[in-house]
């Protein structure tokens, strides 16, 4: 910079600051508007919605639509609300995230601390898995699930998500463990710890940030996945995202916008929850290993 710092007057510095904060505020509002519309609409009655003003606050806020979405709304031919599908998604996402994270950590551990001839090729191929589009694996995957007798089951979906997620989780953990000092592993070996003992006692307890990153990433992806859900599960076994689609796009009777909105917000809540609980570790984890020391 050629201009010395003291050439900027306090007045213009303040103006610049106002401008920056103003711009940030505008963008924040733009991003938050849809959420605002969803929340307010879900609290309105159908009559009020038909009345017109999308941006208006609800006159008589009520949680009726939320209860209907949860327990009574019709999805396809059954009218039991989305709660069953919500649990489907949860039963899918928890094991899928846990297994893929653990396997990713184990992969990262082996690829950095127990190197074998050809480890680079193996890692390269795992990386390649990150670039394969979902659509490309649909038919082979369906065939595999069929052979394993796991089609149309939550277990099958878990398997699909674990396989698809492994490339990413391995990448995360490998890069994190790359910066983890080898001397610690050697020291533990001399101390008498074996392969798994080193993993459980030394490596995993030091992996907090990267576990958080991986969990957030995997949870968001798997929870929000629609394509695998709609392809490999149907009817009562479908995950939340598929049910939401069926609810919103069902064409019989009156279109209940407030119920649709409530269901959509419910569908988004778990990922929101994960971000709020673990989010502060997220950036820390992403940056970890980027700078030495």
């Amino acid at each position: 910079m050629s201009a010395p710092a003291d050439s900027v007057s306090p007045g213009s510095a303040r103006a610049a600051r106002y401008f920056i904060y103003g711009a940030l505020l505008v963008f924040a509002l733009v991003y938050l508007t849809p959420l605002y519309v969803m929340l307010t609409t879900s609290l309105k009655s159908l009559d009020e919605i038909r009345g017109g003003d999308m941006m208006a606050l609800p006159v008589a806020p009520s949680l009726d639509a939320w209860f209907r979405a949860w327990g009574e709304a019709c999805i396809g031919v059954t009218c039991g609300g989305i709660k069953g599908y919500f649990w489907n998604s949860l039963k899918m996402v928890v094991p899928a995230v846990a297994i893929s994270t653990l396997l990713g950590a184990l992969n990262g551990y082996v690829l950095t601390k127990w190197r074998f001839p050809g480890h680079k090729i193996v890692f390269g191929m795992m990386l390649f898995a990150c670039f394969i589009p979902f659509q490309a694996v649909l038919i082979p995957m369906a065939r595999v699930l069929g052979i394993l007798g796991m089609s149309n089951s939550t277990a099958g979906l878990v398997l699909v998500h674990v396989i698809y997620g492994l490339g990413f989780t391995t990448l995360f953990f490998r890069n994190y463990y790359e910066a983890f000092p080898d001397e610690l592993i050697k020291s533990a070996m001399i101390d008498g710890a074996g392969f798994f003992r080193i993993f459980w006692r030394i490596l995993l307890p030091s992996s907090g940030p990267i576990i958080v990153v991986t969990v957030i990433y995997q949870f968001t992806n798997i929870w929000n996945d629609f394509l695998f859900g709609v392809s490999f599960a149907s009817g009562e076994g479908a995950p939340m995202t598929v049910a939401l689609n069926n609810l919103v796009s069902s064409s019989t009777g009156v279109k209940e916008y407030n119920v649709d909105m409530a269901a959509a917000v419910i569908a988004a809540l778990p990922t929101l929850f994960v971000y709020i609980v673990a989010g502060r570790y997220f950036v820390r984890g992403l940056m970890a290993g980027a700078v030495k020391g």
């Binding site: 000092p181 001397e183 610690l184 050697k186 020291s187 533990a188 070996m189 001399i190 101390d191 008498g192 710890a193 006692r201 030394i202």
Partner: peptide, 16 residues
């Protein structure tokens, strides 16, 4: 290494 009855002090100390 664990069976050799040796102990090693590393340059980075390698404390867990």
């Amino acid at each position: 290494p664990a069976k050799r009855d040796i102990a090693m002090v590393f340059q980075s100390y390698a404390l867990y």
